[in-house]
Each structure stands twice: as structure tokens, then as C-alpha cells.
């Protein structure tokens, strides 16, 4: 009996640790679902901020503590690192990180005129295409960007250039209401996901009009009209 008791006493800490870890894991899984983290972006963001912080510290040190000794080697070296060397990766990485973050819905919805669109997309009662794609997670992330960027080599670049124009219009207030997509909506954006789906291809209507869509005589939006709120509902919030 005493032997059993001592064996239990020896294994008790391990058992307790196991129970705690199991309970913690179960609680964490139950508490909420966390979407996957983009570790590359997180790392780039952390590196950018760290490099910027070091550059700022070096520059401030020279400007504050060595203002009268700027010609000295240490001052020049610190300024060289703070002004020439470190800002270069900061500039490149922050551009990359920022452009990646600019794909997020929050980025698009930070423009006043887009708030109605995003509100509709997130509205469970809405029947618009955007809302249905969002509610059903047909697109996992970057919902606006995924549907409004042309595929191909220059798709992203074109989207960014057009985006700069949108920012200018938002800032200068030169946009016209209701907001409408400029030009037609190219079928390749829809077919990139739907084109190879069985559900899409089994649909008789789709099979009937596919040739017309591919030849440009018709567009996906000719039938699927309600992509966003109706123009009359696109007023400013």
C-alpha cells in the first residue's frame, strides 16, 4: 500500500500537468475559432517596425546627443545607418506589407463611400452576390480585392493604380453617386472560381450562355444583376 502511495506521489505532478494542458487546450478550442495567421506578413511587419525603431533611435541619438559632434566618425556612422542603410529595407518592406494589408475589407471600408457596400456585404439578410459570397465564406479573405482585381500579370498593378484614383476622388469629393463599377465586369474573375465547379457546369442555363459570355456578347452580371446594393440604396451612410 505504501509502495502504491509513493508511486502515485511520484507521478502526481506529471498527471496534474497533463490534465491542465488537456483542459487548457479544450478550453481554447471551445472559446473561439481563430482564422489562420499569415506568419510571413506578421514577420515582415515586425521586422519593418524593428528596423524603423532602430533607425529612429540612432537618428534621434545623433540629433539630440551629438549635435555638436556631427563630423565625428561615430556620429557619421550612426547617421549612415539611421538615414541611409536601415530606411531602405523599411521603405521596401513597409510598401510590401502595406500593399498586402490594403487587400483587406477594412481598408476598402475606410473610404466613406464604400461603407454602404461593406455593410450590405456583412448583412446576413442581404441577397446580393457580395453578401452571399461573404456569408458562405466562398472567399476566405480579402473579399473586395478578390472580386475586383483582374487576373493576369498586371491585374494587381492595375487595381492599385485604379485604387489611387479612387483615393483621390474620395479625398477631393469628386465621385458621383451612386457609385458604379467602371467598365464591364470581366467573366474571368467569376470563372476563375466557378469555371471548374461541377455545380456551375451542371447548370443548364450556364451551359446555354457560356459561349456568349466567353465571346463577350453577354456577361455574368447580365443575369446576376444584384452584386451589391441597388443603385438607389448606395447613398452615403
Amino acid at each position: 500500500m505504501a509502495q502504491l502511495r509513493s508511486r502515485f506521489a511520484r507521478s502526481a505532478p506529471g498527471l496534474l500537468f497533463f490534465l491542465l494542458i488537456s483542459a487548457g487546450t479544450a478550453w481554447a478550442q471551445q472559446a473561439s475559432y481563430s482564422p489562420p495567421v499569415n506568419y510571413t506578413q506578421q514577420a515582415a511587419k515586425t521586422l519593418t517596425l524593428a528596423a524603423a525603431a532602430v533607425a529612429i533611435a540612432l537618428t534621434c541619438w545623433v540629433l539630440a546627443a551629438r549635435r555638436r559632434r556631427l563630423a565625428a566618425f561615430q556620429s557619421r556612422l550612426a547617421l549612415f545607418l539611421g538615414v541611409c542603410v536601415l530606411p531602405l529595407p523599411v521603405m521596401l518592406m513597409s510598401t510590401a506589407v502595406g500593399l498586402e494589408q490594403a487587400k483587406a475589407v477594412e481598408f476598402c471600408s475606410s473610404c466613406h463611400v464604400m461603407k454602404t457596400f461593406v455593410a450590405d456585404m456583412k448583412n446576413p439578410a442581404s441577397a446580393s452576390l457580395a453578401a452571399r459570397h461573404f456569408q458562405n465564406r466562398y472567399i476566405q479573405d480579402d473579399h473586395c480585392y478578390t472580386c475586383h482585381t483582374d487576373y493576369g500579370l498586371f491585374g494587381t498593378l492595375q487595381a492599385k493604380i485604379a485604387g489611387l484614383g479612387h483615393i483621390w476622388q474620395e479625398t477631393a469629393g469628386t465621385y458621383r453617386l451612386p457609385i458604379r463599377a467602371k467598365g464591364g465586369y470581366h467573366y474571368s474573375v467569376c470563372l476563375n472560381c466557378h469555371g471548374l465547379s461541377n455545380r456551375f457546369n451542371r447548370n443548364a442555363n450556364h451551359r446555354r450562355v457560356l459561349d456568349k459570355v466567353l465571346s463577350g456578347e453577354a456577361a455574368c452580371t447580365s443575369c446576376h444583376v444584384l452584386s451589391h446594393p441597388k443603385p438607389a440604396e448606395r447613398s452615403l451612410p
Binding site: L49, A52, V90, S94, Q101, A102, F107, E170
Partner: peptide
């Protein structure tokens, strides 16, 4: 740059 990375808005 820091402002842009921490708070990406147009």
C-alpha cells in the same frame, strides 16, 4: 512608414 504599417488606410 510606421503609421502606414500599423494602420493601413487609403
Amino acid at each position: 512608414a510606421i503609421l502606414y504599417v500599423l494602420n493601413s488606410t487609403p
